[in-house]
Nucleic acid binder design. Structure first.
Lengths: 339, 339
DNA sequence: TCCGCATCTGGGAGCGCTCCCAGAACCCGC
DNA sequence: GCGGGTTCTGGGAGCGCTCCCAGATGCGGA
């Protein structure tokens, strides 16, 4: 029984080389798209690959080469998983779509209780060529820490501190600016906002947009209550706003999930929506369409966000110079019944 | 400049062997948990590993060994992404949690338009040791196809056909049975259901539970409308039910996302919930808590589902004999305002 | 005493690639 | 003609492990 251990089936690079009538080295050059290969050799190799159905061994490439052929997607979801869920799935879809067809593996990491040090050690330990970090909280040190070790990193969502890794984010500022302008165009006179927490860039950017929109028209910007991306806190915030300004006629809520709570409070107090009070949310999550009444909201394209992050990282890994440091993705207003 | 190419930092197995005063082979044995290692050596190796902060090179292990040290999570999300989203995130969380600490990489695959053949080829090509397949539609051939190639597979959600790969699923049948019994205990006389599509096991199982619950009390089981896991189709179904039975006093809806649509129709027609009509959903998704009124629903623990699938697969890979072929996870009724 | 078996150990081949090196072939201008 | 470049090629070392093999040691029974 000289069977040997069971190995992966399929041809090796050596086989391809023989069939193509060239050396292993040349096949390797073709696979990796290097220059200094004659057109004749290149064609021959491609034919041989197709003929044999060859697919390179990922482990061997990684072991022999100086790169890991893998990137990590790190989800830093400290708390607030409610916000994270649909967002997260969209990002993932985008990342995956952008990776399709390339020989790059996607490693998924989520913040486990014990991690921290270990996570950084793993990521900078050569297991991956780069990392996509999605952190909701602006003060998360991970993107910066990783970036400072020299690992190519793209952050999803603007880091509050700034100056660290390049980031890709939805244009939260202009999104909410547009929402406020829309409310003003509806002749609303007293426009409040339920803002996100102060420690999240997404919250602050949306708040800034609201402020600018009102300031443009010389309207006061004092009707702000901060909240924390849960329906309950959205409801509480709405109650406080109504107490402070019983005559408000519009609310811009920085997330659909909070808007749902706000809607409930408004209805409980007998306000008609949108006749008495217009409500605009943000995200265009599944909640917006199912809310009663259906929510007018600012759509951000989360899948596109994932794609763009991935594109940016791969471009950097590919040695692309002069890449944009950071990028903002456009948002759009989706009009439904609440405003 | 004899710098050499830049390699991964960190100690090699050789280093650990030297520090521990044993051979490479022995270190390898300890890492892989083999027998035939003395307690003394084992301890020495563990100390050396801790001292050096050693972590084995994944590529090298895979290349040298007969296994890939990786599993795939395949999401077969043909359409119906609305259902998939939160579900999907929960599964992922569970899989990840169960994998923590083990040296197994998670590869993510989603059905791309072009895939099919390629996907099967990749999975059975030795890149992974096993696969977790989450397919919402019961007729998806992927679990069975993979299983028949001999690749260890665990399916998330019961496959309609049966007989293929082992699966883990929520106990949809007993979940809805419990919901119906609860409605009966509330003295509801005419209990309808909005069921899922006929081609999804999750839909059929929940329907069976409803039937049994009614049959137990000799109640008729004709008030069924099939629908497709969207709020719009839930609304349509509710309208049809009201047309067929204007005097119904309870509805069991096979998914929260459909229940939201049903709720809207009931309210539009002036029915008070739960006074006139009690509504029970299924899933306990984020929609349930934010609905108006908050939805009484059957909770399934999706994260636990992910964990269990992973556990089952890893146990099989570990050579565990006599594993349960398939498993059902308990559900529980979450009482809110709608019933 | 000596054999057999179970337990433990180290040496070293080799997994399938990449990348360095040395060299062949060819072009250019002087 | 010759030196210098650029373009192309093959050979082969070696990435960091696992796993096979051969050998050492210990223990029980004939």
């Amino acid at each position: 029984m000289t069977e040997g251990r069971s190995r992966r089936p399929g041809p090796r690079i050596e086989e391809v080389a023989r069939v193509a009538g060239v050396s292993k080295s040349t096949v390797s050059r073709v696979i990796n798209g290097e220059k200094y290969v004659s057109e004749r050799s290149r064609q021959a190799v491609h034919r041989a690959i197709a003929l044999l159905g060859y697919s390179p061994n990922h482990a061997a490439r990684t072991l022999a080469g100086s790169k890991a052929n893998a990137i990590a997607l790190v989800i830093s979801e400290q708390g607030s998983r409610v916000l994270a869920d649909p967002f997260f799935a969209g990002i993932l879809r985008g990342v995956h779509a952008e990776l399709a067809g390339r020989h790059v593996q996607l490693l998924l990491m989520m913040n486990q209780p014990l991690d921290g040090e270990d996570q950084v050690a793993y990521l900078t330990g050569g297991h991956v060529d780069g990392a996509l970090v999605v952190s909701l909280h602006g003060e998360d040190p991970l993107p910066r820490t990783l970036h400072e070790t020299g690992l190519p990193v793209v952050s999803g969502g603007r880091p509050l501190a700034g100056g660290g890794a390049p980031f890709v984010d939805s244009d939260n500022f202009n999104g909410s600016l547009g929402a406020v302008r829309f409310l003003i165009s509806l002749n609303r006179q007293k426009i409040a906002t339920i803002a996100g927490p102060r420690d999240m860039a997404v919250g602050m950017d949306r708040l800034s947009g609201w402020r600018c929109g009102l300031a443009e028209h010389g309207m006061p910007v004092d009707l702000v209550v901060h909240s924390d991306f849960t329906p309950e806190s959205g409801a509480l915030a709405m109650e406080e706003l109504l107490r402070r300004a019983p005559d408000l006629d519009a609310v811009f809520v920085a997330a659909d999930i909070m808007a749902v709570g706000a809607l409930r409070v408004l209805q409980a107090q007998g306000r008609r929506i949108p006749d008495d009070v217009a409500v605009v949310g943000f995200d265009d999550s599944v909640l917006a369409a199912t809310a009663t009444p259906p929510l007018t909201t600012v759509r951000q394209n989360v899948e596109q966000l994932g794609r763009t992050m991935t594109w940016r990282l791969l471009a950097e890994l590919g040695g692309d110079e002069k890449l944009p440091q950071s990028m903002l993705l456009p948002t759009s207003l989706v009009r439904r019944a609440s405003a």
